[in-house]
C-alpha cells in the first residue's frame, strides 16, 4: 500500500509509541496515509485503538512475521 510518511516506533514504549505517532500524523494533511512499524503486544493492542479514538482511520494491519506489525493509518479529524 502506498503511504505518504513512514514511522518506526519499535524502539520506544508506551506512551511514547502513541506520542510519536500522533505528532507524525499532525504533520500530514487530512486523507494522507502514515505507514507505521510497531511491535507485537502492548503497542499493537493499544496504538490502533488510541488512533481510532482521535478520529483517524485504521486501514490495514500486516503481520511482518518478525514480532513487528505494519499499520496503515489515514489521517482524519481536526488535529
Amino acid at each position: 500500500m502506498k503511504s505518504d510518511a513512514f514511522l518506526d516506533i519499535t524502539d520506544v514504549v508506551c506512551p511514547i509509541t502513541f506520542v510519536k505517532t500522533k505528532v507524525a500524523l499532525e504533520d500530514l494533511d487530512d486523507g494522507q496515509i502514515l505507514e507505521l512499524r510497531l511491535n507485537d503486544g502492548e503497542p499493537v493492542q493499544n496504538v490502533p485503538r488510541s488512533l481510532k479514538d482521535e478520529g483517524h482511520k485504521v486501514l490495514t494491519l500486516e503481520d511482518n512475521g518478525d514480532g513487528t506489525f505494519t499499520l496503515w493509518i489515514e489521517k482524519a479529524g481536526l488535529s
Binding site: 506512551p15 511514547i16 502513541f18 500522533k22 505528532v23 488535529s79
Partner: peptide, 21 residues
Amino acid sequence: LTNEQLERYSRHIILEQVGGK
C-alpha cells in the same frame, strides 16, 4: 519537538486538546 521533548511533554501531547501542536 526533540525526542526528549516528546518524552518530557508526553502527557500533554497525548491530550486530544493539546497534541504536538
